[in-house]
């Protein structure tokens, strides 16, 4: 009992610097933001009223949810395929898959966003190629719109979607798959009616993580959206720095944080934190 207590004391002491840092750098300023949302420019719920009635704010929220939903579906589907190879492939396939999953972590988000601009712009690689082979005559608008934002965000988020999926695939009992095949089920059918349903918790965890990340994206939409496809985080930035309305910016922030908080609570009902790394 004593050893247990001192272990817990030790753990608390080791975590203390991080907790103090988080309190000072995030919690305390956030209370300041909450305070602004109720007091700027005058005390009251006025900014929350604006938030509910302003068509611009609403359209940005709806766009954010739409983009986050599309990015979630595409990222999880792509991550699922990569994870199957990573967890169940031959040793050589595993190495390649692992490389594909880890490399994006070493390249900054800015570099990747500009990389996509270079690939997708009117005179970028894709349009040049497609015109060269005569597939299109006029360049396609692939960037500075929602499409560009979705491509960039999906690319960034796929690796994060991999880990919960990998965890659920690793814990799956191979004999159940053998049993399905032994009972006459084709490989395809075994995959869809046994393998996929058995990794359900991984799919939910993966989707929630990607969705939560997507809601707060700033750099990628700012660069690939080119100001035309504004998401919530960029709207907050604009309200604070360009058309100063700190109260509205703060109210939007509070709503975003509450929404993300609710999703995180949902996430941890399905996934243990250990499974996310």
């Amino acid at each position: 009992m004593k050893a247990y207590l001192s272990d817990r004391m030790g753990a608390a002491l080791l975590m203390a610097p991080l907790l103090l840092f988080l309190a000072a750098a995030y919690a305390w300023p956030f209370f300041g933001v909450v305070n602004w949302s109720f007091t700027l420019p005058e005390p009251g719920l006025g900014q929350y009223g604006t938030l509910l009635s302003d068509p611009l704010v609403q359209s940005v929220f709806i766009r954010t949810l739409r983009i986050a939903a599309i990015v979630t579906i595409v990222s999880v589907a792509a991550a699922y395929a990569i994870t199957v190879v990573w967890v169940r492939g031959t040793p050589a396939q595993r190495v390649v898959a692992e490389f594909c999953i880890l490399v994006p972590f070493w390249i900054s988000v800015l570099t990747r966003a500009f990389g996509w601009v270079a690939l997708l712009s009117n005179r970028g690689l894709f349009n040049t190629w497609l015109q060269a082979i005569g597939f299109i005559s006029e360049p396609l608008t692939l960037v500075r719109n929602e499409f560009g934002v979705i491509v960039g965000m999906t690319h960034f988020l796929i690796p994060f979607a991999v880990f919960p999926l990998a965890s659920s695939m690793r814990s799956l009992d191979d004999r159940v798959l053998l049993a399905a095949r032994g009972l006459g089920s084709s490989r395809m059918r075994t995959f869809w009616s046994v393998f996929v349903p058995m990794t359900r918790s991984g799919i939910i965890g993966s989707a929630l993580i990607v969705f939560v990340f997507s809601l707060g994206f700033f750099v990628t939409p700012a660069i690939l959206g080119g100001g035309r496809s504004v998401m919530v985080a960029e709207l907050i930035y604009l309200r604070i720095f360009q058309s100063p309305d700190w109260g509205l910016g703060a109210a939007i922030s509070v709503v975003l944080v509450l929404f993300v908080g609710a999703l995180m609570a949902l996430l941890f009902r399905y996934v243990r934190p250990k499974q996310l790394i």
Binding site: L178, G182, S186, V194, M198
Partner: peptide, 20 residues
């Protein structure tokens, strides 16, 4: 002949039921 076309009934150690 692949397992799914032989379709011998099989009972595994640990049963290997479909948990879902």
């Amino acid at each position: 002949r692949p397992a799914e076309q032989r379709a011998a009934g099989m009972v595994f150690q640990g049963y290997a039921l479909f948990p879902h």
